[in-house]
Nucleic acid binder design. Structure first.
Lengths: 327, 327
DNA sequence: ATGAAAGCGCTAACAG
DNA sequence: CTGTTAGCGCTTTCAT
């Protein structure tokens, strides 16, 4: 393996000189030695040892991203936004899937600390109250889900309550009188806020909130399916606000199986606007979150924190209604 | 920051002793000192510095995964399979998106080398003939796409030609006489092989291969859409074999816009069986690849290579026909 | 059963 | 303009 030392020997200079040249700190280096060293570096195919550099510099130019599951379109888009931004900022990203399990979250947090990542972006597991999260000195930004923490961390979220309000109101304006809500559980913060928005919209429009029309389980297609089956059993509904698009996909599936037409018999609106939503049949009307941008902003904020910049530690991005075919 | 040195001082032992205890190489350590040290480690919340360890040990327990785009459901599933397997093997994974650009591929390869990853899993950019790929001494396994390389690397692929043959044959058995093929370009190896399978199936069943019914562009929804538009302009088709499911999704979209019913007027079959395919309308009939397993097998092979195990460097996984509603 | 010491490859303060 | 040197935190050989 070619090291700085070997280059130094071959060029008859010190390692310090080589280091300076490689890192562009060569204001005081003669052009002659600069050329000579660069030539040898090239010829030998020298690759700097980043590990040694990191040890010395006490930074790894690596960040960790902890999320439930990259296979979930929401998180893959988030991850992509984060990776792109990280690349621009000169960082690499280590990917960690938790499946919403606190145990895995804890494990990854430990690994990332040992690996001395410069910062961590995390969508906390539902209800996570991690010891490691609280203790860690590593800069961190929480995306999508807020959790209670006594140390200062960055936060990137979206106006969930308002988005949900918009969604429900839209359903009402389309003439729905019996509007169901299918979402994840309340310990999932975004889900809880969307529930609030749903309630407020009903109340402000003179509609009664019927707890039997609320089905809270998971942010999955399966839950959407089961939610509709459960709702249909005990209610008549003419509109459903789904806590995310995956749920909406499952819901529509179930509605079709019950010979209910969307949007004629039942109108459905989702949340997120994941990339596939527009290709569903009918194409999903939904509350769009700037998912990719969420990832981008998370690393921008993280990089700012790492660089000890004085910034606002909470950023709220805006949602937007996208009207398509499902209501 | 707590270091091994500090622990050693607090416990009145040498750093060597602490190191041995931490790493379980404590056969010759008295139970008394072991307890004492462990206690202090716990109390101080000591976290080993993985960077220093890596420098000394000359391994990072990290692998890189290079792929076109995690937002593409195929690759997110592949990445998930890889990450899960890596976690089991004690490795972390650095995620790199290339968008199929050789330049980005090259850049990431360099970064990964500098970061001293123990191995690399890569879905090479189309037509990639990377200098870095050829030079690198880092263990590597290529997934999905084979590229020509003069050094020994692991390969995990799928029987593409055969899968395509199955797909096309299935369309023929369903009564299609005019079968189009929409896929990515030939420089994409899997696409080229699927084209071969398509051709062979037509020939072996007495059907003529009509170059005007072949549309080669990208593995994207947009290409599927454009492909159908192009085919419809100059041909009548009653069946389309799509090189992957994304193309199939775009194709069905375009077909619907042309008031053609799927599968009644035109039968469509895809390739991959990405997770969303079953939720399309109609649900996609497709050739399933074991995508998640592809990722898993890739890291298993990579870990074996890193460990200098003597293994078969080429593994071919099998495809399987999944019949659903689109033909 | 324990410790001293060398060294992984690099950077940077300081000296010359 | 260039080199010497000390260490970053860890593992491991070899003594004791």
């Amino acid at each position: 393996m070619t090291t700085i030392k070997k280059i130094a020997e071959l060029a008859n200079v010190s390692t310090a000189t080589v280091s300076k040249i490689i890192n562009g700190k060569d204001q005081y280096i003669s052009e002659a030695t600069r050329q000579k060293v660069l030539e040898i570096v090239e010829r030998e195919g020298y690759i700097p040892n980043g590990v040694a550099k990191s040890l010395k510099m006490r930074r790894t130019k690596t960040i960790g991203i902890i999320l439930p599951d990259v296979m979930n379109l929401f998180f893959s888009e988030l991850a992509r936004g984060a990776e792109d931004a990280a690349e621009k900022e000169g960082y690499s990203v280590i990917l960690c899937n938790t499946d919403n399990k606190e145990l895995k979250e804890e494990k990854y947090l430990n690994i990332l600390h040992e690996k001395m990542v410069d910062g961590i972006i995390m969508t906390a597991a539902e209800g996570s109250m991690n010891k490691s999260v609280k203790i860690s000195k590593t800069p961190m930004v929480l995306v999508d889900r807020d959790i209670e923490l006594d140390k200062p961390v960055g936060r990137i979220t979206v106006n969930n309550e308002e988005g949900a309000f918009m969604a429900t109101k839209f359903l009402i304006e389309k003439g729905c009188k019996n509007i169901g809500f299918i979402s994840s559980q309340k310990k999932n913060k975004p889900s809880a806020e969307r529930l609030k928005g749903y309630r407020r919209a009903l109340k402000e429009n003179g509609l009664e909130v019927d707890e039997k029309k609320i089905f809270l389980q998971n942010f999955t297609i399966a839950s959407g399916y089961e939610g509709v089956m459960a709702l249909l059993e005990r209610n008549k509904v003419d509109g459903i606000f789904c806590g995310n698009d995956l749920i909406a996909i499952g819901a529509i599936q179930a509605l079709k199986e019950n010979n209910l037409k969307v949007p004629k018999d039942v109108k459905v609106i989702g949340f997120d606007d994941i990339s596939m939503s527009q290709f569903m049949d009918p194409p999903l009307t939904t509350i769009k979150q700037p998912i990719y941008q969420l990832g981008e902003e998370a690393v921008k904020m993280l990089v700012a924190i790492i660089g000890k910049k004085d910034i606002d530690m909470h950023k709220v991005l805006r949602t937007e209604l996208i009207e398509r075919g499902s209501c």
